[in-house]
Simulated scan of single mutants.
Amino acid sequence: KIEVADYHYQGDGQLKNSVPQPETDQRLDTQGDKLMSRVIYRRIGDQQSIVAVHSIKTAQSGGVRWYEFRLDDQQNISLFQQGTYAPDSLYRWLPSPAMDKFGNIGIGYSISGEELFPGQRFTGRLAGDPVGIMNLKETVLVNGEASQTNTLRWEDYTQTAIDPSDDFTIWYVGDYLKKGASTYSTKIGAFRLQSVQSFEK
Rank of each mutant, 00 (worst) to 15 (best):
V19D: 04
D156C: 01
G180E: 04
G63H: 02
R121D: 15
Y91P: 14
Y91N: 13
A5F: 09
M36P: 00
D33V: 04
D6Q: 05
R27E: 13
Q31G: 03
A161Y: 04
E115K: 13
Y184N: 07
P22L: 14
V51M: 06
V51Q: 01
T169H: 11
L28I: 11
N135P: 00
P87L: 12
Q197E: 10
R192I: 06
P130K: 04
A127W: 04
D175M: 03
V4F: 04
T160I: 01
Q47R: 15
R42G: 06
L193Q: 03
S182A: 15
Q148V: 10
R153H: 05
V140M: 11
D166P: 00
Q60N: 07
Q81N: 08
Q14A: 13
N17S: 11
E145V: 12
Q10T: 00
Q60A: 06
D163E: 07
Q48K: 12
P95K: 05
D167K: 01
W171K: 01
K1L: 12
L94Y: 14
T183P: 04
R125Q: 13
L152Y: 11
V51D: 00
I2S: 10
L28Q: 10
S61F: 04
Q26H: 01
Y91E: 04
Y7P: 02
Q159F: 06
F117D: 08
P95S: 15
E115P: 01
E145N: 11
